[in-house]
Computed example of a mutant assay.
Amino acid sequence: MTKAQPSDSELWKLIQLDNNKAFDLLFNRYWSAVYTTSFTYLKDQEACTELVHDIFLNIWRNRHSLEVTSFKNYLTTASRYQVYKLIKRGKLNPIVLVDEYDALPDSSYVVNQGEEKIRYQEMENSIELVLAKLPKKCKEIFMLSRFDNLSNQEIADKLGISKRTVENQITIALKALRISIKAILYSIIFFNI
């Protein structure tokens, strides 16, 4: 007997609670529909793939503020809107065949923006995971320092602890983040070449 698949609304509630697996299920359920809808208008595989990733990346980033009642309708509307924006801006870059790639101006500055967005999101997710694994007080101190821009003395006063404790906790958090970031950079450099 097969297990019943969760509904879109059940998945959305889990996604709003930062559940990556629920997001993966939703992505796998709808990415081809979004791709097909956009391909109908654009006839460009790369642009459609980037469009799909942008839509789902936007959903993940705004999961706490988005109000979605019907995912099918939301994604259809979002893909049509993105297609419209691409066509209006003329962002579809025609493929140009060149004999001498090195002769192209500024060829060293060509960047795949979709790939960069994905790498940034991976880095952001990894940082969130590292912060989530920190002890509660360590995480709180780090967040006050780095996100609320409080000085070590201000944090110490606010939490009723010594300035030295604040410094130690920030050092622990930074060490954990450095290890995580090194691992991410290693995987980007050696596996995404």
Rank of each mutant, 00 (worst) to 15 (best):
N62S: 10
R63V: 01
H64G: 07
H64V: 05
E67S: 14
F71H: 05
F71N: 00
Y74I: 04
T77F: 10
A78Q: 05
S79Q: 00
R80D: 13
R80T: 08
Y81F: 13
Y81D: 15
Y81N: 14
Y84K: 11
L86R: 01
L86M: 09
R89L: 05
L92P: 05
L92V: 10
L92E: 11
N93A: 14
V96M: 14
V98I: 04
V98A: 09
D99H: 13
E100Q: 14
Y101Q: 12
D102T: 02
D102V: 05
L104T: 07
D106V: 01
S107N: 15
S107Y: 15
S107W: 13
Y109W: 13
V110D: 14
V110S: 07
V111K: 10
N112R: 00
G114Y: 06
E116S: 06
E116R: 14
K117W: 15
R119Q: 10
R119D: 07
Y120C: 03
E122Q: 14
M123I: 10
S126E: 15
E128T: 12
E128G: 10
L129H: 14
V130W: 10
L131Q: 12
A132C: 05
C138E: 15
E140W: 01
E140R: 08
F142K: 04
M143F: 15
R146C: 07
D148H: 13
D148E: 15
L150T: 08
N152W: 11
N152I: 00
Q153N: 02
Q153I: 00
Q153L: 00
E154Y: 06
E154M: 06
E154R: 06
I155D: 05
I155W: 09
D157F: 06
K158D: 03
K158Y: 11
S162V: 01
S162L: 04
K163M: 02
R164V: 03
R164C: 02
R164T: 11
T165N: 13
V166T: 05
V166K: 08
E167W: 12
E167P: 01
E167T: 12
I170D: 02
T171H: 14
T171N: 14
A173G: 03
A176K: 07
L177A: 04
